[in-house]
Design a binder for these strands. Structure first.
Lengths: 205, 205
DNA sequence: ATGGACCGAGACGTTTCGTCTCGATTCAGT
DNA sequence: ACTGAATCGAGACGAAACGTCTCGGTCCAT
């Protein structure tokens, strides 16, 4: 909040302690898993990481920002995030494969807690949300867009479709069910979504 | 049946002060609008409502629960919530009308702040989420289901479609864009969703 | 070697939490 | 009409976390 003139210190990333940064990430993720996001405190993260509170306040504006960076770091470590959607020539099959994987990830207890925390915070904090979307969501959605472009070239998609809207037709309902826990999130649901979205709800004349 | 746990107090709704209840709703909604949800405190609500803190803690388990009830009460006052989806025989047109109205509501500043707060809290708090879904979301989605059933009878829908999934095909992407602020939420987007979902993304042979 | 920036540690005043106590008031049952 | 129990407004209370601020200590560039 306090962005006054001389007070705004720019903490020079060169002198930054890599050791502390990692320790903070580990502590943050561990505490969120153990206590949940609401009962995870910055003081708790600092204590667990063996770090001064100021070291956190110097580099991050909020608890949520710490968790976002920790989460991004976690994703980068797992280089197996081979971020590619298969292109077998069968669009429906490829989409089902990826959406099923997404279902598995969203229901994986290790990822679910921090993801929910970040998402909830983003719903209410536009600045954090922008970071979240830019660094996590959009890159992921772009993979779908690319696959749909390829599908259009192969004649598997109606020409003129807005690929971005089409992606949201798959991902939106999935996210909706996950966020609001309305009904179980299953592989079958993912498959049905693909079938309905590709085939349409209207009778095929 | 000995349900007299000393710990479990059942605060007997008969003696409850209607006056205080309303004052708390008003104060809660006003403060959330003025300060945002995060900086709205239970102490602040109590002070603004001219009410003892205990009166809030006695009847609600959390700040979010207060806001949910306040929000529900607000909706019940506005009896003009004539909760019907038109049935003109043109499914696409009817859906576009309702989805456009939903877009307007989601972007209405008066409703947006408390709705975001409740949704965010629900993402992270399963108990609150269940209440939210049961009392706000599901009744609303049921209207769509009913309209789709009518459409199926009229031959406007492929037979055998799971109406609930179909509803989520419309509402999911809308909610996705609203929650995560990925792209602007417009009437055009609502229309496109209806066209894509009904017509399907695959080429119509 | 020396100055500056970061570091861990923690003291500090503040805010809010959730519980508890206190009379006053209001309602139900004898 | 009396009385007892429960809620009411008001606020005191200790605990917890906030975010800011010193402290020395350490590391690096000058």
């Amino acid at each position: 909040m306090n962005e006054n003139q001389p007070n705004t210190r720019t903490p020079d990333a060169g002198r930054r302690s890599e050791r502390s940064r990692r320790a903070i990430y580990d502590a943050a993720l561990a505490l969120v898993s153990e206590l949940g996001y609401a009962r995870t405190t910055i003081e708790g993260i600092a204590a667990r990481a063996g770090v001064g509170k100021q070291t956190i306040y110097r580099w991050w504006p909020s608890k949520a920002a710490v968790l976002l960076d920790a989460f991004l770091d976690l994703g980068e470590q797992a280089t197996e995030t081979a971020p590619v959607i298969p292109d077998t020539g069968d669009l429906a099959a490829d989409l089902k494969l990826v959406l099923r994987a997404t279902v598995d990830e969203l229901t994986n207890p290790a990822f679910e807690a921090p993801t929910r925390a970040l998402t909830a915070e983003g719903v209410v904090d536009p600045a954090l949300c922008a970071l979240y979307v830019e660094r996590l969501l959009n890159p992921s959605l772009q993979l779908y867009v690319d696959r749909l472009r390829s599908a259009e070239a192969a004649g598997e998609l109606r020409p003129g479709i807005d690929h971005r809207v089409a992606v949201e037709l798959f991902v939106g309902p999935l996210t909706h069910r996950w966020m609001l826990r309305t009904l179980p999130l299953t592989h079958e649901y993912a498959d049905t979504l693909v079938d309905y979205a590709l085939g349409g709800l209207s009778p095929r004349a």
